[in-house]
Design a protein around this nucleic acid. Sequence first.
DNA 1: CTAATATAGATAGTGCCACTCTCCAACTAG
DNA 2: CTAGTTGGAGAGTGGCACTATCTATATTAG
Lengths: 224, 224
Amino acid sequence: MRISELSRRSGVPNATIKFYLREGLVPPGRATSATQAEYDEGHLRRLRLVRALISVRGLSVSAAKEVVGSLGEVEGDTYELLGLVFGVWPGADGNGPAGSGGGEGRGGGEDHDEGEDADVDALVAELGWDVTEFSPARKTVTQTLNTLRNLGLDCGWRDLVPYARLAERTATLDLDQIEGPDDPLEKAERAVLLTFLLEPALLALRRLAQESEAAARYRDQGLP
Amino acid sequence: MRISELSRRSGVPNATIKFYLREGLVPPGRATSATQAEYDEGHLRRLRLVRALISVRGLSVSAAKEVVGSLGEVEGDTYELLGLVFGVWPGADGNGPAGSGGGEGRGGGEDHDEGEDADVDALVAELGWDVTEFSPARKTVTQTLNTLRNLGLDCGWRDLVPYARLAERTATLDLDQIEGPDDPLEKAERAVLLTFLLEPALLALRRLAQESEAAARYRDQGLP
DNA sequence: CTAATATAGATAGTGCCACTCTCCAACTAG
DNA sequence: CTAGTTGGAGAGTGGCACTATCTATATTAG
């Protein structure tokens, strides 16, 4: 098919597809001549995935590129492959390096954001998790802990342990979901879908559950 | 204190504080004359919160305004108050209305994004949750489900039930954390902190857990 | 064959957003 | 008195995600 059909079937404007092609989010079509190229179902599929990552999950174009890029380099075994997928870390959003949340306390401490993962190390050790030292998710946890303390809550890594146990079970569900296909490529794509696209839904479920739990605890209870 | 001290102690540039004041993210100081105003610890606290919501959580300025705005209108009982906080829904990111993820299938279905929460209704009923019909989180779940189906996964609301059960327990932890303070205002602020700032960390924990679980299942296993 | 339409690829432009800069008329510290 | 700060307002900046235009072909309807 040509670009217009791709556009019609995906709902993505013609010009935007060209933009994604230029940015490398979608691989180029098979050129049939100087000004003609042929696209297939794979392109359509990729286009839909990119669209979902950007508009549903809210990834930036460059983050989405990294994510789908990891899909293109499937070479090793399943473990390596999933490591590649899970290792990609376009933050909780499109954020780059945001420092450590700014603001030294009244004492005037220094800002150092290198190393300093002592909290996460302890947490990981306590949980018995098997994660590399380079997972980008580490610094997200560190930063959150720092920020919360910065805002006056006295919380440490121990407070995260119960949350981490639940995350563990969530991850088990995730991995169960990708057991299905034998094809490593399909496994990888499914991992991307579940990891990234489920994120907004998981947060939404937490909100609904909070609402429900708050109703159970505090409704018809008057002022505390 | 005056604006420069606010800036020094928060690490937020002078001009940015002025911008936040203009946008209403931080309340105006107590004016002592035509060109002088006085700020207090409350302003500093608010400024740090706003900064965290924007740079750690990745909220847009307008979303952050909504969130902190809800803190200013504490009037009713604890239930109402938490409803106000939890009800604020600046999506999974700074996204506005992103349609239903674009793209009709090959059949050429129509896009309707009104109502259509049948899936979520069933899910909520199954879970026995007590949530209003107007929670913005509802359409996030609906949209995710639609998007996943659109991408070729055959998944329904039933697949979310186990995730929802875990969300339920996460919410229980959350509500436990805000039991502490008796002051409704402090409860509300804590709810904001836990709800929004913990989100990146929860997702990061899930990633780490995925990595660890993948290692346990697939490492040293060769090609599938 | 011609004419109308479509296409790939490149370049430039648009709109939004989160700041950031520049001014100016008051202040205020030394 | 003078130098430096402040609050306030408006304009300017840079990044990002597209979007529009242009050109040299290609295809296709007649």
